[in-house]
């Protein structure tokens, strides 16, 4: 495509983002400010993730984009096409084939490997934002690793609901040092972040922050000794592929209360069906 630089952003901007990324990788979980650019899509649609992807994308990369685990939703399709046109890179829906995966709200079910980068779209990078509104104060709290307040939030949840009520964006400690918002992925995905072989990059466009988790870094979900962190999933098997270990979306199928639970990760579901699994509502491949 002519008229645009490779992957849309100019080289100076990409360098600036890469410098921020290097710093972020060097200090796992620490939020690095960056000069977020105006992108040809609104805030909240993944402007931070797109800028990070643009900065790390090379001509030989294969890109996968998911939104809520699905490759075929509007947001995922448009971002994938955006890079296909502005960078001419190969795209895929296959987790195993991708070198870069940009995601909104999920981590693929299939284990990522060392030659992959996962880029998270982040609406609110500050895990303490709802507890402490002052950015100066939260910066100081990160600087001094004063995270008692986050536990106060968990304490309050257990007191009111009997358990921690956070089902997504569940706060984690990275490398025993920084408290980090994992972006609105379900708590179900939190354990996948721990010691992940792939590089994890996080971009928040509106909030102008980048952070990262290098490969094989300890990531621990906050909890209490007597109320340990637990993942939850809907107690069903996938209606299409029959999987019992994947994160499920609930799909309303009619206006008479009909519901279907299916894998949120569409590639995982298809791969599972390809090898012959079939769920109660599915059709054998």
């Amino acid at each position: 495509m002519t008229g645009y630089n490779f992957a849309y952003l100019d080289e100076q901007t990409k360098r600036m983002i890469r410098r921020a990324l290097l710093k972020a990788v060097a200090i796992p979980g620490h939020q690095v400010p960056f000069g977020s650019r105006e992108m040809p899509l609104p805030y909240g649609w993944g402007t931070g993730g797109i800028q990070v992807t643009a900065a790390v994308l090379g001509p030989n990369d294969t890109l996968k984009v998911i939104d809520q685990g699905a490759d075929d939703t509007t947001n995922a399709v448009s971002i994938r096409r955006f890079f296909a046109r502005t960078a001419g890179v190969a795209t895929t829906t296959r987790t195993a084939e991708a070198t870069i995966i940009q995601t909104r709200h999920r981590i693929p079910e299939q284990k990522l490997h060392e030659n992959q980068i996962i880029v998270y779209q982040v609406p609110q990078p500050e895990p303490l934002s709802r507890l402490e509104s002052s950015r100066i104060e939260t910066t100081r709290m990160h600087g001094l690793a004063e995270y008692g307040l986050m536990h106060v939030k968990l304490y309050e949840d257990i007191t009111r609901f009997g358990h921690v009520s956070l089902s997504y964006d569940y706060p984690v400690m990275v490398n025993d040092r920084y408290l980090m918002a994992p972006s609105p992925i379900p708590a179900f995905d939190n354990p996948k972040m721990d010691m992940m072989p792939a590089l994890q990059l996080f971009g928040a466009g509106r909030e102008k922050r980048i952070y990262a988790i290098p490969p094989y870094t300890k990531v621990v979900s906050l909890d209490f000794d007597d109320h340990p962190f637990r993942t939850t999933r809907a107690p069903h098997a996938c209606g299409l592929c029959g999987a019992t270990d994947s994160y499920l979306d609930e799909v309303v199928t009619d206006d008479r209360g009909g519901r279907l639970f299916v894998c949120s990760d569409t590639d995982h579901c298809e791969t599972h069906r390809d090898v012959g699994h079939v769920g109660s509502e599915g059709v054998a491949a």
Partner: peptide
């Protein structure tokens, strides 16, 4: 409980 948690107490019941 906040000061206890700030000091590292991690047992809700305690």
């Amino acid at each position: 409980g906040e000061r206890l948690m700030a000091q590292g107490s991690r047992h809700y019941g305690d």
